[in-house]
Simulated assay, not measured.
Amino acid sequence: MAGKFELWVDKGGDWRWNLKAGNGQVIATSQGYASKASAVNGIDSVRTNAPDAEVVEIEK
């Protein structure tokens, strides 16, 4: 089963989304957005930019 984005309005009135893996586990959570259009733009940004995103290990 493929992953999916879930979009909703939180208790404070902000739009948010979760990216869920095929097994239903949440693998990414958005910030709050003032409008649905902005939240959808956030989803589109992840779709566009994540396939080639670099993995950087941060050492302490």
Results as ranks from 00 to 15, higher is better:
Glu59Gly: 11
Ala37Gln: 10
Asp52Trp: 06
Gly32Leu: 03
Ser38Thr: 14
Gly3Pro: 03
Ala53Cys: 07
Leu7Cys: 08
Gly3Lys: 08
Glu54Cys: 11
Tyr33Gly: 01
Ala28Ser: 07
Pro51Gln: 03
Ala21Met: 12
Leu19Lys: 10
Asn18Leu: 09
Arg16Gln: 02
Asn18Lys: 14
Met1Pro: 12
Val40Asp: 03
Ala28Gly: 06
Val56Trp: 01
Trp17Thr: 04
Ala50Pro: 03
Ser45Asn: 13
Val40Met: 06
Val9Lys: 14
Gly42Ser: 06
Ser30Gly: 04
Met1Gly: 15
Lys20Glu: 07
Val26Ala: 13
Ser38His: 13
Trp8Ser: 03
Gly3Tyr: 07
Glu6Gly: 12
Glu54Arg: 13
Gly42Trp: 02
Lys4Cys: 11
Ala28Gln: 06
Asp10Pro: 03
Ala39Asp: 01
Met1Val: 14
Glu54Ser: 14
Ser38Tyr: 10
Glu57Tyr: 06
Ile27Arg: 04
Val26Gln: 12
Pro51Trp: 03
Val46Pro: 02
Thr48Gln: 12
Val40Phe: 02
Glu57Gln: 06
Lys20Pro: 04
Ala28Val: 05
Gly42Cys: 05
Met1Glu: 14
Ala39Phe: 00
Ser30Val: 03
Lys36Leu: 08
Asn49His: 13
Ser38Asn: 12
Lys60Gly: 14
Trp17Leu: 07
Ser35Pro: 00
Gly24Met: 02
Trp8Val: 04
Val9Leu: 08
Ala2Ser: 15
Val56Lys: 10
Asn18Cys: 13
Lys36Asp: 05
Asp44Val: 14
Ala53Arg: 05
Gly3His: 05
Trp17Pro: 00
Lys20Ala: 07
Lys36Pro: 02
